[in-house]
Nucleic acid binder design. Structure first.
Length: 661
DNA sequence: CGAAAGGCTCTTTTT
DNA sequence: GAGCCTTTCG
């Protein structure tokens, strides 16, 4: 099969330019995915490059999985040999194999944001800082900012300018110390520590550099400085680095993605070739024009003028509603009508919003109408209490130094280890400069060292004596058996079931058990490891099920990379799009425009933008104005529906409510 | 010492 | 409106 079939000239150049650095600027709907997969297939089939020598980096796990599936179709079994995943997943693997060189155990655990937050709180406590005065979240994001730019605590010490920065420096240093003690890495560490591993161990870097003949990075506009530095390291030998992205779709600067990466790629690699993919195959001309207007207002853009052969299509609709409830009704009734008329099935439709909080009203309307829907990532599975608890047991068993997990479950279910006991115990462990688990170990060998009452000491020792045999067992049995034993021995099963919603909790635990069952390939330790790693890096977009005939409810951010025949963007109001909150931080209007651009360009045939006059926010009813971003769109592209007209289309809810806004 | 109830604050986007 | 923390009660 010829890998160039069905590609336009620009796409062919993007596939065939395999020597040296290459920048592919790919607008929305320009066949980017096709180009990337065909490029990899071209390298393997036509240029005889071994799949083992190709690394492709995607933004989400889902994108990685889909790419592997497509490549499996083009290449067959050998697609398994490609290194394909997110930066985080790839780095997690490298550190699993090579971390020993810098004192990292292969059973290290990955801390998610909740774990980070709880560790930060512990830092504040140990540094005698009042968490009410200094928001823990501030430190989480400050540390993340540092790590995204390869700034270590000692580097940061050099550029401290204010008291709060001084505090950040101290918290950062302490936090890193605790992470190390816990043999744990946060998301940013996965990247930063891989960079430092390569930086301090040239022999390891050389191995990876020599292995990867070709490097391909997707969604390059949303990479941070650390990720770019990693790419330069790994591609340093052959310089066959191909980056794909679109500056207009950069929407993660709040996560410290750095647009400069893509804007200055040509300066960093003067020999780079640049390919523009400007033909859009996805959207109607009206949709494309309207979306372009929104983003074209931005200054300092790299103009990428999209065009399409598609028909003008329907005008973009802007509909005003009275309240968010009416907005939701309108959306649902429009979808119901389209569905009845056979114009679109529910699965063809997506409802997008800026904040997750908005999904609630929409969801209610779907329930009321009995229309099937699929909510992406709102009640996050891996954030459920019971799921986190059970995972904490497994993590602790896998890596007993993991102090966050230990603290989480030491008294869950209740086993008479109260806050006071915990505080005194931690203080004692800290004074001995040992990890909490080591402290438990010591107490059990010699309880006379205990600073606590005999009763408290006994409770701690009992906990240790429950966990320790499980640690041994974890190297002998598979994940599912281990999980079953944990649920039994710890009393967690009974604990979960004892709640009013116990059945639901147990269901979730069983679901987790099912996921664990998928990881039983290798030996016990490896499968536990791979299960915990997969779980840590999993995100909610990953579970979007395209086979169900249901409407997708999704945030604008999560919608990146997806497409739907019919798209609703709700809450197109000043304050929501663009989002602005208290006085704390400034709104990046350019990024807000890009976000709306991303949302609009997800639509193939129909695009409907809705805004409400009144909306509940922060528990208060607020008056809302239409988003200023819509003002510049030319009138002939639009079909404006005033509130009165909307009301006729959106029949009243079939159940009476107490308060009509 | 631990559990339950009430008061408090804070509300963006996610690997 | 929700989750977190503190207070109160057992």
């Amino acid at each position: 099969m010829n890998m160039l079939d069905g590609l336009n000239p620009a796409q062919r150049v993007a596939v065939q330019t395999i020597e040296g650095p290459l920048l592919i600027l790919a607008g929305p709907g320009s066949g980017k995915t096709r180009v990337i997969t065909h490029r990899v297939a071209y390298l393997v089939n036509t240029c005889a490059v071994s799949p083992k020598r190709i690394m492709a980096v995607t933004f989400t796990n889902k994108a990685a999985r889909e790419m592997r599936e497509r490549l499996h179709g083009l290449l067959g079994r050998t697609a398994q040999d490609l290194s394909l995943g997110t930066f985080h997943a790839i780095c997690a693997g490298i550190l699993r194999r090579e971390g020993k060189a810098m004192g990292l155990t292969p059973s290290y655990v990955i801390y998610d944001e909740a774990d980070q937050l709880s560790l930060i709180k512990r830092c504040l406590q140990e540094l005698n800082l009042d968490p009410k005065r200094y928001a823990p979240k501030y430190f989480v994001s400050g540390i993340s900012a540092c790590k995204s730019q390869l700034i270590k605590p000692e580097d940061y010490a050099l550029c401290v300018n204010s008291y709060i920065e001084e505090l950040l420096q101290r918290v950062y240093r302490h936090y890193q110390m605790l992470l190390e003690q816990s043999q744990a890495l946060d998301f940013d560490d996965l990247l930063m520590r891989t960079y430092h591993l390569f930086d301090t161990h040239p022999e390891i870097l050389r191995r990876y550099q020599s292995r990867y003949l070709h490097l391909l990075i997707d969604e390059f506009q949303d990479t941070n400085a650390t990720q770019y530095a990693l790419a330069k390291q790994m591609g340093g030998k052959y310089r066959n680095i191909c980056v794909v992205g679109d500056p207009d779709q950069s929407i993660y600067s709040w996560r410290y993605a750095d647009l400069r990466n893509i804007l200055s790629f040509e300066k960093d690699f003067p020999e780079a070739r640049v390919v523009f993919l400007e033909q859009n195959y996805r959207s109607t001309m009206n949709i494309l024009e309207a979306a372009h207007t929104v983003v074209s207002i931005n200054e300092n853009r790299k103009e990428n003028r999209l065009w399409t052969d598609n028909a003008a299509g329907l005008p973009v609709r802007i509909a005003e509603t009275y309240s968010e409830a009416e907005e939701a009704q309108y959306v649902v009734s429009e979808i119901a009508t389209l569905s009845q008329q056979g114009e679109a099935r529910p699965v063809d439709c997506a409802v997008m919003y800026r904040t997750n909080a908005q999904s609630r009203a929409i969801e209610e309307a779907f329930v009321r109408y009995g229309l099937p829907y699929q909510l992406v990532g709102s009640v996050k599975f891996y954030e459920r209490r019971e799921v986190k608890d059970v995972l904490a047991y497994l993590r602790l068993i896998h890596n007993p130094y993991d102090s966050v997990s230990l603290m989480r479950i030491i008294n869950v279910p209740p086993r008479n280890i109260g806050q006071r006991t915990i505080d005194e115990f931690t203080q004692w462990a800290n004074s001995q400069a040992i990890a909490p688990y080591t402290g438990l170990e010591r107490l059990s060998t010699d309880r006379t060292v205990s600073p606590l009452s005999a009763r408290a000491t006994q409770a701690l020792i009992s906990f240790y004596e429950m966990i320790q045999p499980l640690v041994k067992k974890s190297t002998e049995v598979n994940v599912v058996d281990l999980l079953d034993t944990v649920l039994d021995v710890s009393g967690y099963k009974a604990h979960a079931l004892s709640f009013a919603d116990g059945e639901d909790r147990w269901e979730n635990i069983l679901e987790l058990r099912g996921i664990a069952a998928d990881h039983q390939q290798a030996g016990p330790t490896e499968s536990l490891s791979s299960f915990l790693e997969a779980v840590a890096l999993f995100t909610d977009v990953d579970e979007l099920d395209e086979r169900r005939d249901a409407v997708t409810l999704i945030t604008l951010h999560q919608a990146k990379g997806l497409e739907f025949p019919v798209v609703f963007i709700t809450g197109c109001e000043d304050g929501l799009i663009p989002l602005h909150w208290g006085t704390l931080e400034e709104t990046d209007l350019a990024e807000e425009r890009r976000l709306l651009f991303v949302g609009m360009t997800r639509a193939r045939h129909r695009l409907l933008l809705t805004h409400a006059r009144k909306r509940r926010r922060h528990g208060k009813l607020q008056k809302c104005q239409v988003s200023p971003f819509l003002a510049d769109i030319e009138k002939q592209l639009l079909d404006r529906l005033a509130h009165r007209a909307v009301k006729k289309r959106a029949p009243r809810r079939d159940q009476p409510t107490l308060f009509e806004l």
